[in-house]
Design a protein around this nucleic acid. Structure first.
Length: 182
DNA sequence: TAAGTGCGTCGTT
DNA sequence: AACGACGCACTTA
């Protein structure tokens, strides 16, 4: 594994790569990891390419745009249920949102609503697997493992660059009003 | 509207 | 067996 910093105008993210691809993204100022194993493996040419794709993709999402190209993902840590959830979430476009219940239905497990929430929390690649676009029913904010401020921030960025979103939701102010708890 | 309680449900640990 | 990034059906202010 190899971790590399990704500087953006919104802070310094950390990207961790395995031999198979991008394995994990950390938000700026996230608590330090205990796992020092192989964290500084050699930066191969392949990883350099993935790093570059990751950096551009993150910058796109931060600007409210859909990335054109993505690095390969290493999702081997996930269970098959979690990977189904993550795959479904990848189909949500910027400016669009789904509820946890809608994601559950999409993967054919309509009652596993809470489990979908759990899978969102276990998402190792936030931003690029856009779990911030999954809200509680009727547009309440729900939760976010990286901190609710990041979820609001990303949704507002995408709202500003998506006419559809405004048509459906009136305004991003809804996020402030409808969140269940801070 | 807002805030609180209780319960069904199911994947994960 | 216990715990949630849920959703629903309720009360109470």
């Amino acid at each position: 594994m190899r971790s590399l910093p990704i500087e953006t105008s919104d802070g310094c993210f950390q990207a961790r790569f395995s031999g198979a691809g991008l394995a994990r993204i950390f938000f700026p100022d996230s608590p330090p990891e205990d796992d020092p194993i192989q964290e500084k493996a050699e930066v191969t040419p392949r990883i350099e390419v993935w790093f570059d794709l990751t950096r551009r993709a993150i910058q796109d999402v931060l600007a409210g745009r859909a990335p054109e190209v993505l690095p390969p993902f290493d999702l081997s840590t996930g269970t098959s249920f979690q990977r189904q959830v993550w795959e479904a979430i990848r189909s949500i476009r910027p400016g669009q949102t789904l509820s946890y219940g809608e994601v559950a239905r999409l993967i054919g497990a309509p009652k596993a609503v809470r489990a979908v929430g759990g899978a969102c929390g276990a998402n190792p690649i936030p931003l690029l697997i856009p779990c911030h676009r999954v809200l509680a029913k009727s547009q309440r904010i729900g939760g976010f493992s990286g901190g609710l401020h990041w979820k609001r921030f990303l949704l507002e960025r995408e709202a500003l660059s998506s006419f559809d979103f405004f048509a459906k939701n009136r305004s991003a102010l809804r996020f402030e009003r409808q969140e269940t708890r801070v």
